[in-house]
Design a protein around this nucleic acid. Sequence first.
DNA 1: CGTTCCGATTTGGTATGACAAAAACGCACA
DNA 2: TGTGCGTTTTTGTCATACCAAATCGGAACG
Lengths: 238, 238
Amino acid sequence: MTEKENRDARTRAADSLVSIYERQIIDGTLAVGMPLPPEREIMQSFSVSRTVVREAVQTLSAKGLVEARPRFRPVVRTPGYDAAIEAVGSVVNRLLTVPGGVRNLFELRIMMEAALVRGAALHADKHHVARMKQALADNEAAISDSQRFFETDVAFHRLLYEVPDNPVLPPIHQAYTDWLSSHWTKMPRDPERNHVNYRAHCRIFEAILFRDPDAAEFVLRDHLDDAWNQVRQTFEET
Amino acid sequence: MTEKENRDARTRAADSLVSIYERQIIDGTLAVGMPLPPEREIMQSFSVSRTVVREAVQTLSAKGLVEARPRFRPVVRTPGYDAAIEAVGSVVNRLLTVPGGVRNLFELRIMMEAALVRGAALHADKHHVARMKQALADNEAAISDSQRFFETDVAFHRLLYEVPDNPVLPPIHQAYTDWLSSHWTKMPRDPERNHVNYRAHCRIFEAILFRDPDAAEFVLRDHLDDAWNQVRQTFEET
DNA sequence: CGTTCCGATTTGGTATGACAAAAACGCACA
DNA sequence: TGTGCGTTTTTGTCATACCAAATCGGAACG
């Protein structure tokens, strides 16, 4: 806003518009759920053509600040960690195609989840424990149904992301499962393997019950490493 | 993409173009560094107006798949974890304004960094140790200069993200420092406080040398919690 | 033969006007 | 009060035009 749109020929008018509305959205001038002004109104306000207005709106939409359903007025989106995840979707998908990409992301997940089970072992309260117990039961009940087992498997791991009361974490878990799911579902699955995974979950749970972070981390790493070895066979990297 | 661009009136032509080029970039048809075709060429290829072409390019740029410097032909960007960070910038900045946003992000950082020091204590080799030693020396030498101390402080922490050989991690560190820096630089700084931080770094380093993950984690958490208490005073949340 | 420089051409950035179709609006009607 | 239909907005798209900057090609030069 200091020198803003002096239009140096090296700045795009659309970009200026984007940053203007970005600010308005961030500082709350444009509240959540509020629609952006009509395009023709914007073009008159800033004396720009409709072309730049539309480009600006498109960009705001791509950045995840507004939701622009076709034919509808773009509305300011709820600030959420899920919007952030969505915004990186394209780039991450691309990263997964470069050599070692899947491996790198999965190792990050292992690292985070190891930290999470340590935290769970130290801080999980009765409520969390009860939910994990339930999740384990669901998990066991689905051993014979690989599809359902996969879902309960994901659900069990998700609980780990809910123990710290940090709203950033659940979307991260969602992101991991979304991004890795295409590789994950290719993993061979059968009741025997499901049973192995179920037992691993049980051991993780027990370690948490015993408030033993080292054991919890060890078992979890073992569990995820094992899973990785299953997955890696579906594509040959290094 | 099963029925793609039949143009149901409920899909935007620009969005179709975006997903088409998204695919071409991901599968390598459009190699890194390669420029997109001229706009007029694209419009003929797909029989669309230049408006939609421009909107599509803008979106690809916002998504971080191409780099579109004004007046220059957009070129396919190198797939990098930094591009991912950049793509979420706007959303994250907004998240930092919601109540508890900074706190949530910083706690995520504490969790990750705690996991990293554990890993460093277990796996850091001579090379890493040497670099940390150097970083500590730089850190000590800058105690009297708060500006430089801040830089060496960041540099020391960055090393933690480099111990695992995972290219995802350094950009994450970069992201943390970028996003939190505005709050961070408001923190009161003086040589005495710098000295406290320096000593904390030393203790972290020692714990790593002694291959003692528990001590390393403890000291690091203490260090970051302390930093948080300094920062939180600059804005009152809960 | 390589380099530099200049003009012609290409290409991106923006503006204007137009039109179809869908959404939003308002008003009459039940 | 609620509902339905016609009118008015508004978005999505296209076509065209112009300017200025980038690019390209060849001429002039070392």
